[in-house]
Computed example of a mutant assay.
Amino acid sequence: MSASFALALDAAHAAAAAQHYPQGALYVVATPIGNLADITLRALHVLQLADTLACEDTRHTQALLRAYGIDKPAAHWLALHQHNEAQAAQTVLERLQAGQRVAYVSDAGTPGISDPGARLAAAAASAGLRVVPLPGASSITAALSVAGAVASGADDGGFVFAGFLPTKAGERDAAVQRLQAESRCCVLLEAPHRIAALAATLAALGERPVTLARELTKQFEQITTLPAAALAGWLQQDPLRCRGEFVVVLHPVAASADTAQGLDVLQRLLQELPLKSAVRLAADITGAPRNQLYEAALALKAQS
């Protein structure tokens, strides 16, 4: 056990042991994305309590648990990753149906979003078994929380999670073109050996602000916001900047004066005309993008 975490298990027991943890339930447990101190007290308690620990990499998770003084017999461990998720999920279902508490963890962060776990959770739910989330660390929300990129207005809020883009150049270029048409904040993930290629492709977004978050919560964490066209040059200035796992946040596209005027005109026209006619006229009168006006018209109709 790490000396700095010696009191963690006592704190976890004091904080979480009084809660109810049903048997025959799948516990989807978020784990640290780098800094071990980011584990939650409830996660520590459930990891001790679980009859089976299903994990993306048993060696990685064993190292995490040992840091906190948790030691599980070999029979309690089950590997479940992207290459065996369907088969291993059946083993998990059998153990759940036998009344075991099964905790699932990925290598880092919250399972089932970009990491394995979604198929397991779906299989358990389809079998009528309880699936319990234990929230915690996530590189996606960590990056968004400091990027200042998610608008809070009712009409322009939210974000799009695109995950890892295709590795082939042509497919990646096509994916970036689709993102270029998305006015909301977009979140991508990228590996160190592909970040330079992604940055070169994102240069097509020009002055659109992009936040690069590298090695989040770790010793060499680095977060910077630059125009998309400047990303490749920034990475080339220092080889260390290409190391580590990346979260890439594309900031939302600022509404142009034409768009703002188009929305105002659209609202007036919708009071007198059918939706498609109102959108066409608003676009012709103001020069605002027709697709944005059409989406806004649908939203306005839904609210009325």
Results as ranks from 00 to 15, higher is better:
residue 108 A to V: 11
residue 207 E to L: 03
residue 75 A to F: 02
residue 173 D to G: 12
residue 135 P to Y: 00
residue 268 R to N: 10
residue 107 D to F: 02
residue 168 K to E: 11
residue 72 K to M: 09
residue 56 E to G: 10
residue 181 A to F: 08
residue 15 A to I: 12
residue 250 L to E: 01
residue 112 G to C: 09
residue 220 F to S: 01
residue 92 V to M: 11
residue 34 G to M: 03
residue 153 G to K: 02
residue 56 E to I: 08
residue 92 V to P: 09
residue 99 G to D: 14
residue 20 H to F: 10
residue 264 D to Q: 13
residue 106 S to A: 11
residue 134 L to G: 07
residue 187 V to P: 06
residue 19 Q to P: 06
residue 3 A to H: 05
residue 149 A to V: 01
residue 103 A to P: 07
residue 128 G to E: 03
residue 245 E to W: 08
residue 135 P to C: 07
residue 285 I to A: 15
residue 291 N to E: 08
residue 92 V to Q: 09
residue 10 D to P: 06
residue 107 D to E: 10
residue 71 D to G: 04
residue 67 A to W: 03
residue 211 T to A: 04
residue 104 Y to H: 03
residue 215 E to G: 05
residue 295 E to P: 01
residue 83 H to P: 03
residue 106 S to L: 02
residue 178 R to K: 11
residue 293 L to V: 00
residue 90 Q to Y: 04
residue 73 P to C: 07
residue 215 E to S: 06
residue 161 F to W: 13
residue 169 A to M: 11
residue 170 G to H: 12
residue 89 A to I: 03
residue 23 Q to T: 07
residue 35 N to K: 00
residue 215 E to N: 00
residue 16 A to R: 06
residue 130 R to Q: 15
residue 120 L to W: 08
residue 267 Q to H: 02
residue 44 L to R: 05
residue 240 L to I: 07
residue 104 Y to M: 08
residue 302 A to W: 01
residue 225 T to W: 06
residue 202 L to A: 12
residue 123 A to F: 06
residue 121 A to N: 11
residue 127 A to M: 09
residue 193 H to K: 04
residue 167 T to H: 13
residue 61 T to F: 15
residue 272 E to C: 05
residue 180 Q to E: 12
residue 159 F to R: 03
residue 154 A to M: 09
residue 231 L to R: 08
residue 64 L to T: 04
residue 164 F to W: 05
residue 38 D to W: 06
residue 142 A to W: 00
residue 248 V to H: 06
residue 119 R to C: 12
residue 93 L to N: 12
residue 157 G to I: 13
residue 59 R to M: 08
residue 152 S to M: 08
residue 59 R to F: 12
residue 172 R to I: 10
residue 81 H to F: 04
residue 17 A to S: 15
residue 150 V to R: 08
residue 298 L to R: 01
residue 239 P to M: 01
residue 211 T to L: 05
residue 231 L to T: 11
residue 208 R to Q: 01
residue 244 G to M: 07
residue 17 A to D: 14
residue 55 C to D: 13
residue 248 V to L: 02
residue 91 T to K: 11
residue 302 A to H: 08
residue 22 P to F: 12
residue 155 D to Q: 12
residue 247 V to F: 02
residue 152 S to A: 14
residue 224 T to M: 14
residue 284 D to M: 07
residue 230 A to V: 05
residue 121 A to G: 14
residue 287 G to E: 05
residue 10 D to H: 12
residue 38 D to E: 11
residue 78 L to D: 06
residue 56 E to H: 08
residue 51 D to M: 02
residue 207 E to H: 00
residue 140 I to H: 03
residue 284 D to I: 00
residue 113 I to W: 10
residue 205 L to G: 10
residue 96 L to T: 07
residue 61 T to D: 14
residue 265 V to W: 06
residue 90 Q to R: 14
residue 260 A to M: 13
residue 172 R to Q: 14
residue 52 T to L: 15
residue 243 R to C: 14
residue 127 A to I: 01
residue 284 D to R: 08
residue 79 A to R: 06
residue 11 A to E: 14
residue 18 A to N: 10
residue 130 R to G: 04
residue 252 P to M: 05
residue 90 Q to P: 07
residue 9 L to N: 13
residue 116 P to N: 01
residue 100 Q to P: 03
residue 229 A to D: 13
residue 24 G to W: 09
residue 189 L to C: 01
residue 211 T to G: 05
residue 110 T to G: 14
residue 130 R to T: 12
residue 289 P to R: 00
residue 128 G to D: 01
residue 263 L to S: 01
residue 139 S to C: 13
residue 235 L to M: 09
residue 279 V to Y: 07
residue 193 H to A: 04
